[in-house]
């Protein structure tokens, strides 16, 4: 079953990043971080978190087994799926959304 977990690691990281960004967005818009809501500072914070999330895929990718077999290839493809999903779906969230 370990192999299945490795294969799902990439998409799972996407789900984690979504949860983090969604939660931060909610906290910011609830005024917890300050009265200005989603101002420049908060937006930069979201962008930094997003970039850190993208960067987190690098060690994950490096930690996975490398080789030509499908058992090695699929977990790495899973990371690419997670990376693309994180980049594409969270990009509009951190750059253009408002409260």
């Amino acid at each position: 079953m370990r192999w299945l977990f490795l294969t799902l690691a990439g998409p799972t990281l996407w789900a984690v990043m979504f949860s983090i960004v969604y939660a931060l967005h909610g906290v910011v818009c609830a005024g917890v971080a300050g009265p200005e809501g989603l101002g420049l500072g908060a937006r930069w914070m979201l962008i930094v978190v997003w970039v850190l999330g993208l960067a987190a895929f690098v060690p994950l990718y490096r930690a996975l087994p490398h080789g030509g077999e499908l058992t090695h290839y699929l977990p790495r493809l899973g990371v690419w799926i997670g990376l693309a999903a994180t980049a594409f779906t969270l990009f509009p969230v951190v750059f253009v959304t408002s409260c």
Partner: peptide, 9 residues
């Protein structure tokens, strides 16, 4: 708005 952006993407 945030959910619109994410789920649309």
């Amino acid at each position: 708005h945030m959910a619109l952006a994410f789920f649309s993407a």
